[in-house]
Write a protein that binds this DNA or RNA. Structure first.
Ligand SMILES: [Zn+2]
Ligand SMILES: [Zn+2]
Ligand SMILES: [Zn+2]
Ligand SMILES: [Zn+2]
Lengths: 158, 158
DNA sequence: TTTTCATAGGTTATACTATAACATTCCAGC
DNA sequence: GCTGGAATGTTATAGTATAACCTATGAAAA
């Protein structure tokens, strides 16, 4: 991840979430909001039990449903994605647009970058149509080496 | 899934696996082969513990590593894919070509169709290049309604 | 031949992920 | 004030995956 003003990421996404929740008349309760804030702390993917631990520390309860219910809501609203490959969750960086999330997952440092790809890729859409399948949600995940880790592997003095 | 000669699917994939294993000098042992045969029995995705139960019934051992080791091998060789969304496994229907597996997963009947999509979609590849990310594997998963289930939902007498 | 090394498999235990089920609280609308 | 739905509290359990260590096998090196 390139250096950037992460405070800006946080404000931007949180504001948009707030706005969308109001617009859609959904209940953006304290625990839900706080879960999103925790996930927004970094662009890394966080496992459910990591989130739960944080929520517990902040007084929101210690039982698994606390985390999973918050996550269900946030995913439903499109504020959070699940990275299936990692069984972990990330705040969406493009909550203002409907999209097919696409993740670049580094097998070395496990960093996760969400890239901005349009709704369902054309090739998949074509295949789905041919099969009579109606796509409602889709996602893409790619595993490989991030820029930084690739540089390390290249280094002759490794 | 349309009606088809499934025995033909099985023979075709098994032969190709046999051939590729010999070519790559990897050890296609009885338990590995039998695990693939079990997964080939249908195009549905099977959970690891379902596979384990079958392997156990056929005398290959009852402990989780039995199944997970066989799956690790089969995935490594490209004979099997994991459907991340379902935490379940399917035999690859296109073992003769390197590809990005793409699955159409019905949210109603949980059927899984693997569609034949080329290596990493162009859009994702572009994004990855821009980020300096080297993709090694990628996959796509789409959730929605299969042809049959869509028909049912349409039915006025449902 | 004996040693060595790598791969596969056996076995036990445990960690991690997720949901079911039911009780309780809260609040908006009637 | 009653009522119904949404959110939360609480307990229990189901489901997924890996760690760790040990044994067997067989082919290559010494
Ligand atoms: Zn997103
Ligand atoms: Zn990395
Ligand atoms: Zn495939
Ligand atoms: Zn279906």
């Amino acid at each position: 991840m390139r250096p950037h003003d992460h405070g800006d990421c946080i404000r931007r996404v949180l504001d948009e979430a707030e706005r969308r929740a109001a617009e859609d008349r959904v209940n953006f309760t304290p625990v839900r909001r706080h879960a999103l804030e925790i996930l927004l702390e970094s662009h890394a993917a966080m496992p459910a039990y990591g989130l739960l631990k944080r929520l517990d520390a902040d007084g929101f309860g210690s039982q698994p449903p606390v985390a999973y219910r918050a996550l269900d809501f946030l995913i439903e609203q499109g504020f959070v994605h699940k990275v299936e490959r990692l069984n972990a969750f990330v705040a969406c960086m493009y909550p203002h647009e409907t999209h097919t999330p696409a993740f670049l997952i580094c097998r070395n440092c496990r960093s996760v970058a969400e890239t901005c790809v349009a709704p369902t890729p054309a090739a998949l859409l074509r295949e789905a149509r041919a099969a009579g399948f109606a796509i409602e949600r889709s996602m893409m995940e790619a595993e490989g080496l991030c820029r930084d880790c690739a540089r390390e592997e290249d280094a002759p003095c490794d």
